[in-house]
Design a binder for these strands. Structure first.
Lengths: 348, 348
DNA sequence: CCTTGTATAGAAAGCGCTTGCTGTGACGTT
DNA sequence: AACGTCACAGCAAGCGCTTTCTATACAAGG
C-alpha cells in the first residue's frame, strides 16, 4: 500500500541501509548510488515514516512551543519568532524540524498534559512562553516534569517566564518588575499621585512582578497606596473595561490608570471614554508590552515595549543549540518605556 | 535507562500485551489486573513512547493546523478555536491529541514542506486556514499533496480557504466576495463615489475575492472604477499606511478608503490622520474581519465580521470526525457588516 | 461428566526505520 | 608481490509498541 524504504531500496537496487543513509546523509555513499536512490525516491513519491525513524533513531524532530493564548499577539509574536529559528521548513536552521505550538489556554492541567504529550513524542526541545502559575503544587509538578524532560535529553527553554532552578531549564525572563516601576515612575514624574492599577490574574508571576514594580515606584516616591486602587482581572480588553469602571466607582479622583497589558489598556480607554472622560486630559492611561496595535490607539498608548520577537528568536536558537545559553542559565530581558500620547500631566 | 512497556509489565507481573491493553482501554482486562498495571505505571512514572506506538498502530495522534501568520490574531483566533475542538489536553474531545500549529509565513514552499512533514508524521488530520496562493504550479502541487494525505487516511479540512475539488478535502470557505460587496455597497449607500481600495497581496484568493466584491458593488451602481483607486500591499498595518499615502497622492479627492483587512485599515487611519484628514468627516475608512481591536479604534472601525472562532471550531470538529461534513464538501460562511463610526456620509 | 461458550491473558509476529559490524573490491605501500 | 587501507555497501539486530491468534480457566448447558 504505502511505499516504504524497502520499496525504494528494491527499485534502486540497493539495500535499505543505503537508502536510509542517503536520506540522512551522515555516511559516505557513492555519488552514483545516491543519485539512483534519489531517483527512486522521487519516482515512488516516497515519504519517510516519521514514527518509525524516530523509534529507530531514538530521537524526533519535534519541537514544542507552549503558549497561554494563541489568539493573543503577545504569544503569537513570540511563537512566530521561536518557530522561525527552530527551523521548520524554510527557517534559518538546516534540518527540518516540526515546530508545534501548543495552546494551554492558561490552564495548569493542560500545561502539564501538553508536556507529557511532548515527552511522549520524545520532543527534541520545548519552549515555554509567558508567565508561570504561582501555585506551589502545580509548580512542583511542572518542575518535576521539566526536570524529567531535561534528563531525557529534551532541551527546555523558558521565554518570558521565571527561572525554575534545579530543572535544568534555560530561562530568558522579562524584567516585568523593572518595566512596571519605570512606567509608574513616568506617571509620578508627570505629577500623578492617585494612580489606579488594573492587574492581571492573581496567580501569575507576570502579574505579580508588574504590580511589584508599580508599588516599588509608588513607595520610592513616598506615595501611600490606597487598596482601592488595585483591581485584578484577566489579560483582555473586556476585563480592562470592567475593571476601569470599578476603579472609577471606587475613586473618581484617579488621574491615571496603569493596565496589566495593552489589551487591558484599550479596554480601559474605552471605559473612560464611555464615562465621558478624555485621555489624557482627564485621565492618563498606560499599557504594557507595546503590541503592534498600541500605536494605533487614539491617543497612542504609553507602554513598555518588550522585545518579544528578539527574545523569542533567541529562545529558539538556544533551544536548537545554535546559541549558547546565558551564564547561569538565566538572562533578564529589559523592556523599554515608550512614552506616547495617552499619558500627560494631570489637570489641575 | 528509560522505562518501557516491558518494565511495567514485569513489575505488574503481566505480559506487555496486557499493559498495552490497559493503556489503550479497548480490550477487556480484569479490574484487578488493570489496577495492578496502573499502579506499576504510576510507580515507574512510565510515559508511553509515542513514535513506537504510532509505528505499531499505524496511526498517530497528531493534528496539524497550518496558518499563514501566527502573530496575526486573524489566524490566532481560528487556530485557538480549532485546537479547542481537536481535543488536545482539556479540549472537549476525549482522546488526547497533539494539535500542532505550523506557521507558514505565507510562503508556498513552507506550506508544502509542512504538509510533507505532517504526512511523514502520519498526522490524523490537517486543517489549513486562510487564503490560498493563486499560482497554478503551486496549486497543483498542493492539490496533489492534499490528495495524497487524504488517500493515506488523513482528514483534510480547509478553513477560510477555497475548496480544492478532487482533493478529498472538506472546505469551510468565507464569503469574502459577498462581504466585500456589502461593505462597498454600504459606502455607496452613504453617498460615496470615489472609493480607494487597499488590496492584499495579488496572488491570494482572499485578496481577489474581496476585491471582486468591491468591484461588483461599484459596477452594480454604475460607478466606473478608476485604476488609480486600487493599490496592492501586504496584510499589515505598515502596508496600509503606505498604501493610503499613495492613494492620496494619486487622487486627493477620495472620500472613502476600503482596506483589505482591519490591520491595514488601522494603518490607513494613521496615514489619514498624519495627513491632516479627519475620519470619517473627511474620509471614511472600512476594514474587514472585525478583529477584537477594531472596536477600539477611534472612531471604531466599520468592518465585516467573520465568525472566525465559530468557523474554526466547526473545522476542528469536522477534522475530528465529530461533525458531519457539509453537503458537497463545501460550506460558505457569511460575514456580517458591522457599521461603526469610521464611515459616514461624505462631506460636501 | 463432557461439550461449548465466555472472559481474560500471553506468545509472537511484525510496524518501518537506523546503525554497528562485517564484508569486498580497488588502491597505495613497503 | 603480499598486505594494510579506504571507501562503500549489505546484514541483521533491534527500537518499543500493537494486535492477531492461541491458550487457559471457569461457568453454563446437555
Amino acid at each position: 500500500m504505502t511505499v516504504t524504504l524497502a520499496d525504494v531500496a528494491a527499485r534502486a537496487q540497493v539495500s535499505p541501509a543505503t537508502v536510509s543513509r542517503v536520506l540522512n546523509g551522515n555516511y559516505p555513499v557513492a555519488a552514483s548510488t545516491r543519485e539512483r536512490v534519489l531517483k527512486a525516491v522521487d519516482e515512488l513519491d516516497y515519504v519517510l515514516n516519521g514514527p518509525a525513524s524516530a523509534l529507530a533513531a531514538a530521537t524526533s524532530d519535534l519541537v514544542g512551543i507552549l503558549v497561554n493564548d494563541i489568539a493573543d499577539p503577545f504569544f503569537g509574536i513570540m511563537a512566530g519568532a521561536i518557530q522561525s529559528e527552530i527551523g521548520g521548513p524554510g527557517g534559518r536552521a538546516g534540518g527540518e524540524r516540526l515546530a508545534v505550538v501548543c495552546n494551554t489556554g492558561g490552564s495548569p492541567e493542560r500545561e502539564l498534559t501538553y508536556l507529557t504529550l511532548l515527552q511522549r513524542q520524545r520532543a527534541a526541545a520545548v519552549v515555554l512562553t509567558g508567565g508561570a502559575i504561582e501555585d506551589a503544587q502545580h509548580k512542583a509538578a511542572m518542575d518535576a516534569k521539566l526536570r524529567k524532560l531535561a534528563d531525557a535529553g529534551t532541551r527546555v527553554v523558558l521565554c518570558g517566564r521565571p527561572q525554575a532552578p534545579e530543572t535544568g531549564a534555560i530561562a530568558l525572563t522579562f524584567d516585568n518588575r523593572g518595566g512596571g516601576q519605570e512606567l509608574t515612575e513616568h506617571l509620578i514624574g508627570l505629577g500623578h499621585r492617585r494612580v489606579g492599577y488594573i492587574a492581571g490574574p492573581e496567580e501569575r508571576t507576570t502579574t505579580r512582578h508588574r504590580l511589584e514594580g508599580h508599588r516599588a515606584a509608588l513607595a520610592a516616591h513616598g506615595i501611600e497606596e490606597d487598596a482601592r486602587w488595585t483591581v485584578h482581572g484577566r489579560y483582555d480588553r473586556r476585563s480592562g473595561y470592567e475593571a476601569t469602571l470599578e476603579l472609577l466607582r471606587r475613586d473618581p479622583s484617579l488621574t491615571a490608570v496603569v493596565a496589566a497589558n495593552d489589551s487591558v489598556a484599550l479596554g480601559a480607554c474605552a471605559a473612560l471614554r464611555d464615562s465621558g472622560l478624555r485621555i489624557p486630559d482627564d485621565v492618563s492611561v498606560a499599557g504594557f508590552d507595546d503590541l503592534p496595535f498600541s500605536i494605533d490607539a487614539v491617543p497612542a498608548l504609553t507602554t513598555v515595549r518588550l522585545p518579544l520577537a528578539e527574545a523569542g528568536a533567541r529562545a529558539g536558537r538556544i533551544a536548537m543549540g545554535r546559541e549558547e545559553a546565558p551564564l547561569g542559565g538565566v538572562a533578564s530581558v529589559r523592556g523599554e518605556l515608550m512614552v506616547r500620547g495617552s499619558t500627560a500631566v494631570p489637570r489641575g
